[in-house]
Nucleic acid binder design. Structure first.
Length: 596
RNA sequence: GCACUCGUAGCUCAGCUGGAUAGAGCGUUGCCCUCCGAAGGCAAAGGUCACAGGUUCGACUCCUGUCGAGUGCGCCA
C-alpha cells in the first residue's frame, strides 16, 4: 500500500513529506541524466529523523536501498544525491555518512513553517485521506448478551474503538459494529436463568442457582419486570412456550445494560447486528450462503480426523457438511452443521460476513480475545472465499487483562457471580485512565492492570503525564494575558518565528512534524498503541523544554521584555496542544485545560 | 502431536517497511523549586535482544531449528 500524507487546506506543509518529495525528485533527475538507471523502485526510500542528533535533522536511506537494483556502490549514489540536495535552498547541509546514509540539515525556517502549518490546519492536522479506496467495518466487543461486561471485554471495547477512531482519522469511511450472539444455546440458558428470577419475584423460594445457569444478581430486575408484565401467566406454560418471550425480554435487558456499560467508556456502535435475524422473517440467509458456496464447490460432505491432543470421550466419526476452508489457508475444513441439524456458530458467521461484504465493505477488522486465536484462519478463509479475494480481513487479538491491586492479583469467580465488571473499573479509576492504560501496550501483550497505579497521578501513570502537558500548555495561555493582554493563539498564528532556534524547541517541532506519519503507520497496522506512545514522547519533549526555562530564563515561554518572542513561543505551544488534543481524541481521552 | 501469539535492563514494557552507538517508565544512587504548574527536569548505574544456525552491505526485526511461556484444537459462542 502506498503511503499517503495528502492534506487539505490552502498550502499546508509537512517537513517529512516535503523532503521525501525532494529526494524522489532528485533521484528522478539523476535517472533522467543517466547517472542512475531508469525505472528504479523507490518505494523503500524513506526519510526519518536519525537517532543521533549530530547526524542532522533528517536522514535518508535512498542510496542504501537503491544500490543493489542500480548495481552501484551506496556511497557513489549518495555522493551524487548529496550534490543535488545541496542545491535546494531549504537544505543547509547534506553529507554522506556511515554505510551510505545521507544526513540532511535543514534551514531552521522550514521548522518554523511546520509550526505555521499545524496551526493553519488546526484540528485537521494529521488527518489523512489514506482510505479513499473503500469502506471499513470494525467489529468489536460482540460480547454475548448474557450479563454485564467485565474487564476482558473492556480491553476489546477500548482497542476496537481506538482502531475505529484511528481509521476514521486516517480518512476511511468507518462503521462500528457489534454482533449479537442471540441465536445459540447461551441465550437459552439466559432465558432459563431469568425465568428462575421471575419465579423468585413472584414469591417463590428458589434457593441456590442450579449449576449451569447464570447466578448473578443482575437478572433479578429482569425477573421483576417479567412478573410485572406477565403476572403468573407464564408459570402454567411449558418451557417451549415461555422461553421465546422470556428470552427476548432478557436479551433486550442485557443489551440495554451493555450499551450503558459501553457508554460509560464513551463508546457507541453504529450497528448492532443480530445473529438471529439471519434466520428470521421467513428467510434463511445461512442456508443461502451455504448454497452459494455449494455452487462454487466449496462445500462437501465428509469426515474430519479426530484432534490429536486430549482424547475426546464421545468422539463419533460421522460424515458432516464441511466448508473447504483449507483451500484458503486454514488447517482443516470446518463443520457447518451440528449433529442436531442446527447451524454451527461458524455457519452463521459465514452468513454474517457475507452480509458485511454485500454492504460494500472492502476492509474488515475484527477484535478478538486471545482465546479465539484459533478462529482467525477460519474467518479469513471465509472472507477470502465469500469476497472472491476482493476484501481483506484483519483480526486483532488482545491478551487478557490481569487485574491487580497493590501488586496482588484480584481473582474473579464466575460461580459466585462476584466478577469485577467493566463498570466497577470505570467508576473507580475513570474513563480516561482506563482507556489510556488499555492502549498503552501492544494488543497482543498481556496487561497487568493495577488499580493502585492507575489511580496514582504521577509519571508512573502515562495518562496524567500526557494530559498534564496539555494542561501546562493551557496555563501558559492563561498567564500570558497578564503581560500581553492582546496576545492569543490567533495572534501567534501570524507572528515572526525567527526567535525559535534552541535545540529543545526544534526537537519539539520535529516530534510534532511526525504526527501524520504516526497516524499513517498506526492506522495501517491497526495498532493504536503506537499513537499512545507517540503522545507520551511529545509530552516528554514539551516537559523538557519547559524545564529548560528553570535554568535558562531566556527560554521561558513568556518573555515580558519581548512580545514577538513570546508570540513565537505561543505558536509552538499552540501547535503542541493541537497535536496532543487531536491525538488524545483519537484515543478517546480528554485533553484537560486544567488539572489542579 | 498441530496451529496461533510471545520471549528485549532487577521489574513493567516500546523499538515504525531490515538501518548508524538497542530506548522509556518504575526501582537504586546523586542533584534542580525567591523564577511560566516539581503531577516536572538533569545525571549515574543497569543488556549475550531466550539459544543455535541461515539470508545480506547491514538482523531485536526476515527464514529454519531448539528451549521456555500463554491460548486454542468436530457438534461452545
Amino acid at each position: 500500500m502506498r503511503t499517503c500524507h495528502a492534506t487539505q487546506g490552502p498550502s499546508p506543509m509537512n517537513v517529512f513529506t516535503a523532503i521525501e518529495q525532494l529526494v524522489r525528485e532528485q533521484l528522478a533527475a539523476l535517472a533522467a541524466e543517466g547517472a542512475l538507471p531508469a525505472g528504479l523502485d523507490l518505494s523503500a526510500v524513506a526519510v526519518e529523523t536519525p537517532r543521533d542528533p549530530t547526524h542532522g535533522d533528517l536522514a535518508t536511506n535512498a542510496a542504501l536501498v537503491l544500490a543493489k537494483a542500480a548495481r552501484m556502490k551506496p556511497r557513489d549514489i549518495a555522493d551524487k544525491l548529496v550534490a543535488k540536495l545541496k542545491a535546494d535552498p531549504r537544505v543547509t547541509k547534506a553529507e554522506a555518512a556511515g554505510p551510505g546514509f545521507i544526513n540532511i540539515t535543514l534551514d531552521v525556517a522550514l521548522w518554523h513553517q511546520q509550526i505555521v502549518s499545524i496551526l493553519q490546519e488546526g484540528a485537521g492536522y494529521g488527518r489523512l485521506n489514506a482510505g479513499q479506496g473503500g469502506a471499513v467495518n470494525v467489529e468489536y466487543v460482540s460480547a454475548n448478551p448474557t450479563g454485564p461486561m467485565h474487564v476482558g471485554h473492556c480491553r476489546n471495547a477500548v482497542v476496537g474503538d481506538a482502531i475505529a477512531n484511528l481509521l476514521a482519522f486516517a480518512g476511511y469511511d468507518v462503521t462500528r459494529e457489534y454482533y449479537i450472539n442471540d441465536a445459540g444455546g447461551q441465550v437459552d440458558t439466559l432465558a432459563r436463568s431469568a425465568h428462575l428470577r421471575y419465579r423468585e419475584a413472584l414469591g417463590e423460594t428458589i434457593g441456590d442457582i442450579p449449576e449451569g445457569l447464570y447466578p448473578g444478581d443482575y437478572l433479578k430486575p429482569v425477573g421483576t419486570a417479567l412478573a410485572q408484565q406477565h403476572g403468573k401467566r407464564l408459570l402454567g406454560l411449558a418451557e417451549a412456550d415461555w422461553l421465546p418471550e422470556v428470552k427476548a425480554t432478557a436479551i433486550a435487558a442485557m443489551l440495554a445494560m451493555i450499551r450503558e456499560d459501553l457508554a460509560s467508556l464513551g463508546i457507541k456502535h453504529d450497528v448492532f447486528f443480530s445473529e438471529r435475524s439471519l434466520t428470521a422473517g421467513g428467510e434463511d440467509r445461512v442456508a443461502d450462503t451455504i448454497a452459494w458456496l455449494q455452487q462454487r464447490d466449496l462445500v462437501y460432505t465428509g469426515t474430519l480426523p479426530p484432534p490429536k491432543g486430549e482424547a475426546i470421550e464421545d468422539w463419533e466419526d460421522r460424515p458432516q457438511t464441511l466448508f473447504r476452508s483449507s483451500k484458503f489457508g486454514d488447517d482443516l475444513d470446518r463443520a457447518l452443521k451440528k449433529s442436531d441439524g442446527g447451524y454451527t456458530y461458524f455457519a452463521s458467521d459465514l452468513a454474517y460476513h457475507r452480509d458485511k461484504l454485500k454492504r460494500g465493505f472492502t476492509h474488515l477488522v475484527n477484535v478478538l480475545g486471545a482465546d479465539h486465536s484459533g478462529y482467525a484462519k477460519r474467518i479469513k478463509a471465509a472472507v477470502s472465499a465469500l469476497s472472491e479475494g476482493r476484501a481483506e480481513m484483519d483480526v486483532q487479538f488482545y491478551q487478557f487483562v490481569k487485574l491487580m491491586k497493590n501488586g496482588e492479583p484480584l481473582t474473579m469467580s464466575k460461580r459466585s457471580g462476584t466478577f469485577i465488571t467493566l463498570r466497577d473499573v470505570v467508576d473507580e479509576v475513570g474513563r480516561d485512565a482506563v482507556r489510556f492504560m488499555m492502549l498503552y501496550r501492544k494488543n497482543d501483550a498481556a496487561l497487568d492492570f493495577d488499580f493502585a497505579k492507575v489511580t496514582e497521578q504521577s509519571k508512573d501513570n502515562p495518562v496524567f503525564y500526557v494530559q498534564y502537558a496539555h494542561a501546562r500548555a493551557a496555563s501558559v495561555f492563561r498567564n500570558v494575558r497578564l503581560s500581553f493582554p492582546e496576545l492569543d493563539l490567533a495572534a501567534a498564528r501570524t507572528t515572526d518565528l525567527s526567535s525559535l532556534g534552541d535545540a529543545a524547541e526544534i526537537e519539539l517541532v520535529k516530534q510534532l512534524a511526525a504526527f501524520p506519519k504516526i497516524i499513517n503507520g498506526a492506522a495501517r497496522a491497526h495498532e493504536p498503541h503506537r499513537l499512545a506512545f507517540y503522545l507520551f514522547d511529545v509530552a516528554s519533549a514539551f516537559h523538557q523544554l519547559w524545564a529548560r526555562g528553570n535554568d535558562s530564563p531566556h527560554l521561558r515561554f513568556i518573555q515580558p521584555s519581548s512580545k514577538t518572542a513570546t508570540a513565537a513561543r505561543l505558536a509552538l505551544i499552540g501547535a503542541t496542544q493541537q497535536v496532543i488534543s487531536s491525538g488524545l481524541s483519537v484515543l478517546g481521552v480528554e485533553a484537560p485545560q486544567e488539572m489542579r
